[in-house]
């Protein structure tokens, strides 16, 4: 086992640098997917809470579909299906191939849209947990809908949403491993390549696990910190 460890180093035979880059790529993909999920999830949640009937039904259907279909299938659909669509369009326009789409983009979109469905659930639940009385108190002093949302609803809902959003972030990190099927060199892909090349499967998959654990543990701390800060003033928080 001793010799093996140099494989993880920064030396000429070491995969250290490649693994670090791959870890960063995992982080990029996850952050991009989480943020697009947040943006889109907010829209979905809003449609479900405040939309008219067709909008509400559409948003519900969206959540049902993306929560009910395996994530890997959505990624295949976006990457391989997307490539097919792009090729068809390109050919129709008389352009010469080969056509390709970015694994990064397809992966981020696929995971972002899946995450949007889940995040919209968290956000909707958080909105519904805002005490009605505090909303009435805002209306009765003359707040507009926008001010009410910004000053009364959002700050309270975010507190409730933080733990759930932390969970969503953790799942996005783990789902980002699925993007390896597009050939994007993130952590999963990189350790698979290294394991195959060196035949040191246990070593590299263990290293991969550690990379994911570092990311998830650190972000767990960040979310806990955010939760503690935001709970100031609430019963659980203390001063």
């Amino acid at each position: 086992m001793q010799a093996d460890l140099t494989l993880l180093g920064l030396g000429p035979d070491g995969w250290g640098l490649a693994l670090a880059r791959a870890g960063l790529m995992t982080l990029y993909v996850s952050v991009a997917a989480f943020l697009s999920g947040l943006a889109f999830g907010t829209l979905i949640a809003w449609a479900r809470v405040a939309g008219n009937w067709p909008l509400r039904k559409l948003a519900e259907a969206y959540a049902t579909v993306f929560r009910g279909v395996p994530d890997i299938l959505v990624i295949y659909l976006f990457y391989f299906g997307g490539r097919q669509v792009v090729t068809a369009i390109g050919t129709a326009l008389g352009l010469s191939g080969p056509f390709d789409i970015s694994g990064f983009l397809a992966g981020v979109l696929a995971i972002g849209l899946i995450s949007a469905a889940n995040q919209s659930e968290v956000l909707r639940g958080a909105y519904q947990a805002v005490p009605r009385g505090t909303i009435e108190a805002g209306r009765v002093v003359g707040m507009t809908r926008l001010i009410l949302f910004r000053r009364v609803i959002a700050p309270q809902a975010l507190v409730t949403a933080i733990p759930g959003m932390g969970n969503q972030w953790q799942s996005v990190i783990k789902e980002s491993a699925l993007v390896s099927v597009t050939g994007l060199v993130e952590t999963m892909r990189q350790v698979a390549v290294a394991a195959g090349t060196t035949q040191e499967h246990f070593l590299f998959y263990a290293a991969g696990a550690i990379i994911y654990l570092i990311i998830t543990t650190l972000s767990d701390h960040v979310f806990r910190l955010a939760e503690r800060r935001s709970l100031r003033g609430h019963e659980q928080g203390g001063l």
Binding site: P131, T134, E136, H234
Partner: peptide, 11 residues
Amino acid sequence: FVFQNFNLWPH
């Protein structure tokens, strides 16, 4: 307007 349940903004 003063409510029965106060309805202060807890945050």
